[in-house]
């Protein structure tokens, strides 16, 4: 599923990251790489998403999140 479908306060594992070269490089350098575990903190429409990963709170533009595929972790 796409990252933007994950509900608030759920955790997921990144399975795939897709996009142009620039996006891939930016998303990697902030630490969102395949295999990394993230928690969705905020998922409101018309706002960037907020996710927590590698001890860091990250704001992500919603459109760009479409390139991030995740598997939800059942707690």
């Amino acid at each position: 599923m796409s990252l933007s479908e994950v509900k608030e306060n759920r955790e997921a594992l990144v399975s795939e990251v897709k996009g142009d070269t620039r996006f891939m490089s930016r998303i990697t350098s902030i630490g969102l790489t395949p295999g990394c575990r993230i928690r969705v903190v905020k998922n409101d429409k018309n706002r960037p998403m907020l996710v927590y990963s590698r001890d860091t709170m990250i704001a992500l533009n919603r459109k760009e999140c479409k390139g991030i595929t995740v598997e939800e972790v059942t707690a």
Partner: peptide, 13 residues
């Protein structure tokens, strides 16, 4: 145009 990308940014503590 290529600089108009969406936000990917850390919210620092």
């Amino acid at each position: 145009k290529e600089d108009r990308y969406g936000m990917i940014m850390e919210l620092p503590p």
